[in-house]
Design a protein around this nucleic acid. Structure first.
Lengths: 337, 337
DNA sequence: CTGAAAGCGCTTACAG
DNA sequence: CTGAAAGCGCTTACAG
């Protein structure tokens, strides 16, 4: 490809001038502008976005760190969140870089992301990635809160404690005494919040939360969420005596339902199931239709993007936004008499 | 942020050496490596991806040009296609840059996309964007074919002519004599192919295709697909005498159904409706459930990405892939006796 | 309004 | 195994 030097040489001007013709950052005379444009046209010259970004220290794109599930298919949550982010990018004239690359162990393999800022999903406890972005000075917004808590970090989140408390209360009020909670992995901040919320619900009903009924996803044990749900029920039903199960996601619930079918457990008659995240497609197609929680992923994404643009324009800004989640009652829970 | 120079200076080595420690492109002694890494750690140094990309002329990311519909919400087709692309990127260690930015009129506003190659959706007749990418030497893959046809351009596509012929045949065999076709915009190659296919169906049934029953989407007339469907029926029903309508997308079909409801036209009793693209979510939720065509958007995306990676590794390669589309019969069409 | 030159932060022959 | 220097293709004070 022709470069700015080629154009400058051929048009008999300096490259600063060619640069100005394209960037319009300083006025160039009509005649020179025309000549430069002509030559550029002839040579098929287009400015190199990368070189420009390096020079001005601005890429006009933001990154979204989004780990792909092992089966490679994004969840509806992911999809909706991306849609929220992309809408805001579009408004601001930014590109969106979807980064699904796995985290590297080798520290020499890191580099600064080629973007002006990053949205990070599913923060963990003492998340190394967060520390790294802070060191690099990369504007950062989390979807989910940080642990240890740092109020200088911007994030959007559902009120996960609340959600779990509400769901717990819903079940306990319904006469359930013992609830199996298939939580997300223990290192995620959301897991902690949810457990906490469930504990509050128990305590509101004057009950202690049975700790052994709160289990965590372990990717070493389970290939995916559905298997996690399936195996958990297969291994525990009969030994433990829960009448309801709360799952991390609807995919986990899918596994629970499958296990129930195999064990001839009727849902919701013998077992109530409720998922803490609502994948519009799956939830409605399950049998029975899954009672779940709507997290408003698109809103989370849009708000995260807005926070990030704020932060890009002024690094000192930090703000937290809580998006309310809604319990959506369908058919998979039963009130015991 | 610390740069490679800072590290080099502080470690008392040349920047070439620091570079080599991180890139591992030439061997560096154990001791020097350790010292460099230590200093880097201390300074919080991370290589600048942009600068690296500029030097090696490789970004390790590909672009997807995806215009956002005016309402900002991606269609299921878009979503599925992205998912297909992203899966392949993930496998290859690439990032995916989603570019929704509008096309610029001003030629000075173009620049080379900061990616190693581009997937372009919805090519048009004499598409300027295609010509530009070819000039720049940017590896390019289309989703949809180019017009004028150029067999050196890689693309993936459904067999749109076939799809339209099949759908047309389905309706004509069902006893319909006149079909209203709400096609996509006239400048898209897919519109041409579909019209052609429908004409073939008519001719197979010994009928001429009534040209005035093939209309095109015009974004100056309609804010979105749904309105296009709605207005088209409102304005034509009664004046024209079709018994079936083929729509570009299920969103257009949604508008058709709405109009039918307002005009007290029963679907499918009085009007059959069939969409040429199947948005899994919408189609099933419509009333009646929409008969439509499954285009396998995810496969299109995955194959497009594969072709692009091929082309990035060897620019001379060009290949075309046709993904079969499937007619999915649901409830919105009726066979006339 | 325009040019010369240094700078953005890397990589890579070439030499030793 | 390591260094010095040119190069990747832009932008931007500084000077005129």
């Amino acid at each position: 490809m022709a470069t700015i030097d080629d154009v400058a040489r051929m048009a008999g001007v300096s490259k600063g001038t060619v640069s100005s013709v394209f960037s319009k950052k300083r006025p160039i005379s009509q005649q020179v502008t025309e000549r430069v444009l002509e030559v550029a046209q002839e040579l098929g010259y287009f400015p190199n976005h990368l070189a420009r970004s390096l020079a001005i220290k601005r890429t006009m794109s933001i990154g979204l760190k989004i780990p792909l599930p092992p089966d490679g298919t994004m969840t509806a949550f992911d999809t909706q969140l991306i849609n929220g982010v992309i809408k805001e990018c579009s408004k601001q004239g930014y590109r969106l870089v979807l980064d699904t690359l796995p985290e590297q162990e080798d520290p020499t393999l890191y580099s600064q992301d080629p973007v002006d800022g990053v949205i990070l999903l599913n923060p963990r406890k003492n998340d190394l990635r967060i520390q790294r972005y802070l060191m690099m000075g990369t504007p950062l917004v989390l979807v989910g809160r940080s642990d240890p808590y740092d109020d200088t970090i911007s994030y959007v989140d559902n009120n996960n404690t609340n959600v779990a408390r509400q769901v717990g209360d819903y079940l306990l009020r319904g006469g359930h005494k013992t609830v199996l909670f298939l939580n997300a992995s223990s290192d995620m901040t959301v897991s902690y919040d949810r457990k906490h919320g469930l504990a509050e619900a128990y305590s509101q009903h004057g009950l202690p939360m049975p700790e052994e009924y709160v289990v965590y996803y372990d990717h070493k044990l389970h290939a995916n969420g559905t298997e996690y749900g399936y195996m958990s029920i297969m291994n525990s039903y009969g030994n433990m005596n829960y009448t309801a199960v709360i799952t991390d996601t609807d995919r986990v619930a899918l596994g629970v339902l499958r296990a129930a079918r195999e064990l001839d457990i009727e849902v919701p008659e013998q077992l109530s199931v409720i998922a803490l995240s609502n994948d519009a497609i799956l939830a409605q197609d399950m049998n029975p239709k899954l009672t779940s929680v709507e997290l408003s992923a698109e809103t989370l994404g849009a708000e995260a993007a807005k926070l990030l643009f704020e932060k890009i324009s002024d690094k000192r800004i930090h703000r937290q936004i809580i998006i309310p989640a809604q319990l959506v009652v369908r058919e998979s829970c039963k009130f015991l008499s």
